[in-house]
Design a protein around this nucleic acid. Structure first.
Lengths: 386, 386
DNA sequence: CCCGATTAGTGCACCCGGTCAACGAACCGA
DNA sequence: TCGGTTCGTTGACCGGGTGCACTAATCGGG
């Protein structure tokens, strides 16, 4: 447990469980007074002075300039973590690109890099990762951890990529290899789960002990948090909703399923459907979206179907896991605007009749959100499991 | 924490967290030596003597007559819990019947009672529950807890039934009322989750940190355990797979869904389908099952469709939650025998292609299993959350 | 303007649940 | 019989957390 906070600290700090949980509470729930943290974590007030003192002395916590909330009694002295105290690099690998960001402790992006992937050969990829990490590192400030996320089966608890179909990898000890190359603790994770982690600590999931994240983009993904814990099934296989059957007469997906979720709602499928129906093979997804927004009947229908498929996916996930909230995100969430009614109708229709539909929050998506997720996955792993 | 172990103990025991976890470990994982328990719970050997001594003295643990496992070194001294040290009553309420059992600590049924429910009027039900509890109680031996389960939204953390459609109840503080009537701590729970709890501690779930239970009977139900914790969504709404859409052309359910799981696989739906097709309204479910076993084409087809629907339900649950195992149970699981192939085919077909199908275990079901589940729910609540 | 009321934070003695280290116990095989 | 090995116990000790008494800082009211 020592390594987490000793590196680059003038005063090395020996971490106790209470210190860790206080730190995480302050990191996630923003500035809070000692008294408030004590109440939340069921600790005594005296424990809190004892715990926070070394963290403040070592520079991890700051006494935030407290604006008085105008109440009786002695005003509280809010504490916050010094987000700049640590730095992380998050990397998202896709079939043909590498996105990387450097973030601080609060997952604020400080620098970003995107570049094409030279190939899928592991040595090349390792080299590119090492280059990017070097590029993102500020000389005097060592990184605390590196996170790598990809579409495939991988978990932070395990340094090997089990399968990554789009990269053609299986049983690849990527974390070890990168760790060796860059000399920084490195953590792997599934891309959707990493994104869920980011939402859990720094996004819409804050304050919810259970929620689900559903992503739309090149595919449909899903991450689940239950009892404040990010679920990862056997070898990281959770939230595989991409091929959920919507009906049995719909469009075909690349695996030969008729009417599965990704055949309806993934961006390539939407584009293909409209392009094919109109015999305009060069239409882009954005063209399609514009057409739907403009009321074009074909585009409208395809997007309505996509929205309905998404609504059914969300309802199904909610029926099974019972989250307080579902966050909708992904590269093409903005399409929600043109299919909101279809989505809501399907959500209501497929929600089990004994409950009310889940609350759904649409979370706008920036292209570097995936890489940011990887950084948060690394951060969480460092703070919780070390 | 004191109340759990002090009642009726000649020597009152003050429980620590370690004592609780050691006790549960021994309860669930059978006789184990101190050394083994210490390893499993990451405690020191000395902690174990310290923890077990008072529990042995108070009669909660016994030194089991150790059959030597023939190994080098000093033979270990297995410990086991004295299952007779506590007694529980579990009650399952259905629309028109009340099933109740008395169990020991290991959920072994010692006495059972079943009787028709006089009505849904709360005072009558409360009275009947109190009668049954009295009937099941052995004079000298007070009960440790009473568990009540029903189809509807209820959680052990909360003494009120939120909704119980088949009983026509909503927002009913049943636990308080019963507790007052019988003077024993009383816990409510959803029936499927209670059954899942029983599987988790004393059934197929033992040894698995994540698994799902899918039940077939009058309806289709599902309970989920993730990270050793039984999932209960907002107000206990989880595992609502009954109306999962299987296709969009199938039979109608009572809520007007075409082709949902319960329209295919619930026992009333199966019976109705076959009775209607053959125009023999008096056929029973067992008649139908016998016909299918005998190769009758209509019955065969209906049961195959039911099996396929179940397979799809299991695959969907597994895709989303990623359990190590799925346990198949419920009043009519025995129908699995006549539709195993259809089930397996659907399971494979709907399992996400990046993973292998979950392991499925078919668990035979006795009619008092529901009530036993309620007893386990009470036991778990007493041991973990008190 | 002072004085209780109220809430926040600190210092210090203490407690108690665990570990550590040393040892005794009970088996094996040579 | 004796070393090897694992199990279990004992007693000293350690350290994280609590309890309590105290100080700090603000408010509203007489």
């Amino acid at each position: 447990m020592v390594p987490v906070f000793s590196q680059s600290a003038s005063v090395p700090v020996r971490l106790t469980d209470a210190m860790r949980s206080v730190f995480v509470e302050l990191l996630v729930h923003g500035p809070l007074s000692r008294a408030e943290v004590a109440r939340r974590l069921a600790l005594s007030p005296s424990a809190l002075t004892k715990v926070t003192k070394p963290l403040i002395e070592a520079g991890y916590l700051l006494e935030a300039a407290g604006e008085s909330p105008a109440t009786v009694g002695r005003p509280s002295q809010p504490l916050r973590v010094d987000a700049s105290r640590m730095a992380f690099v998050g990397i998202k690998l896709t079939e043909d690109e590498l996105f990387a960001v450097r973030t601080d402790l609060r997952a604020t992006i400080q620098k970003e890099v995107a570049r094409p992937l030279a190939g899928h050969e592991i040595d090349d990829v390792r080299g590119q990762i090492a280059d990017v990490v070097g590029e993102l590192t500020v000389p005097g400030r060592p990184l605390s951890a590196v996170g790598i996320s990809l579409a495939g089966t991988a978990t932070p608890s395990d340094p090997v990529v089990h399968t990554a179909p789009f990269l053609g990898w299986s049983q690849l000890p990527l974390a070890e290899m990168v760790e060796e190359a860059v000399s920084v603790p490195t953590v792997l994770d599934n891309d959707v789960r990493a994104l869920t982690a980011a939402q859990q600590w720094f996004g819409e999931g804050v304050g919810h002990s259970s929620f689900a994240l559903v992503t739309v983009g090149a595919g449909i993904g899903c991450g689940v948090v239950v009892g404040d814990r990010l679920v990862s099934g056997r070898s990281g296989a959770t939230g595989l909703v991409g091929h959920l059957q919507i009906d049995d007469r719909g469009p075909l997906c690349e695996r030969g399923h008729r009417g599965c979720a990704r055949a309806y709602a993934s961006s390539p499928a939407i584009r293909r459907s409209i392009a094919a129906a109109l015999d305009q093979p060069d239409l882009t997804f954005d063209d399609c979206l514009a057409m739907a927004a403009g009321g074009h009947p074909v585009a409208r229908r395809v997007f309505d179907d996509a929205g309905a498929a998404l609504g059914q996916v969300v309802a199904t996930v909610a029926n099974i896991t019972g989250p307080e909230l579902v966050v909708l995100s992904g590269e093409t969430v903005h399409m929600y605007n043109v299919c909101a009614e279809a989505f809501q109708a399907a959500l209501i229709r497929h929600t089990h009749w004994t409950t009310t539909p889940v609350r759904v929050v649409v979370k706008p998506f920036a292209f570097n959100e995936w890489a940011r997720g990887a950084a948060v996955a690394a951060l969480q792993h460092l703070l919780l499991h070390r």
